[in-house]
Amino acid sequence: MPLPNKNSEDDLKLKAKIASSKFLDNAFQVIGVVTMILAILVLGTLIAKLFIDGIAQLNFDFLTKFPSSKAAKAGVYSAWVGSLIVILLTAAVAVPLGVGAAVYLEEYAEKNWFADFIEVNVTNLAGVPSIIYGLLGLGVFKYGLGLGSSLAAAGLTLALLVLPVVIVTTREGIRAIPGNVREAAYALGATKWQVIWDHILPYSMGTTLTGVIVALSRALGETAPLIVIGAVNFIAYLPENLLSPFTVLPIQMFDWVGRPDPAFQQNAAAAGIVIIAMTLGMNAIAIYLRYYLRRSIKW
């Protein structure tokens, strides 16, 4: 096709077409920037408000003191330690189970209606309200297994909560591995297990860990299911073992918000800052791990 002559009718039409496409390009860019600024503003306002309210309370003592009936003396020691242990427990249970389930579904299970059925259910589980998991934990872990209102019951309950996310992200990571890389390993005589262990798991680990940490930072803020299984909101000692009663940061915060003394509102805000700091810390780890584990992986 010859190029249209300059300023001919076709030439002008082409120019008009390009101009209108470019206009859409620009319009979309503007909309994108505006929405992003709005989102950042909302987040910024929230964090700023927390800081303004809580910063006065936030100091080293606040992190090393137990709760108290006097606002000025109260701290979040038992709460942040509880949060940390519960999250570690959650990860220790959810990661092996979730990765195992994902590997099974992707590599072993026959692709039939039953696999589809499981797939739909796992995806739906990710959307079940967290309080329902609380009820499950109450029935199965607290009473069924007799774990009581303990760290163990909390960790297991939150593990169930994050399990679907771990499964779904791990499967995504596995599916992103090109078939010809898999074939290369099989062609060298590798067994299924060798392929999984030497290739599938390492190549999908970046995706899995990112998913795990995003899920865990959500679990860190979960309050409802832990209230259901009976987390205490005033506890003046550190847990001794996994069957000890416990509290976590959001429950501590929730308790303080409910108190009439305005000094406790400052404590609540300070506890909020601690939660956000932990979440951001976890996200930083996620970003680093993703970078570190995926630096070698270019498909």
Binding site: P178, N180, V181, E183, A184, A185, Y186, A187, L188, G189, A190, Q194, D198, H199, Y203, S296, I297, K298, W299
Partner: peptide, 30 residues
């Protein structure tokens, strides 16, 4: 067992996302 004795080079290059050394050594490691 068949694949242990019969090697294949594919139509499109398909290296593992590992080092050059590990790529060549993988069949031996297996």
């Amino acid at each position: 067992e068949v694949r242990m004795r019969v090697s294949m080079v594919f139509q499109k290059p398909n290296p593992f996302p590992k080092s050059i050394f590990e790529n060549v050594a993988y069949g031996l490691r297996v």
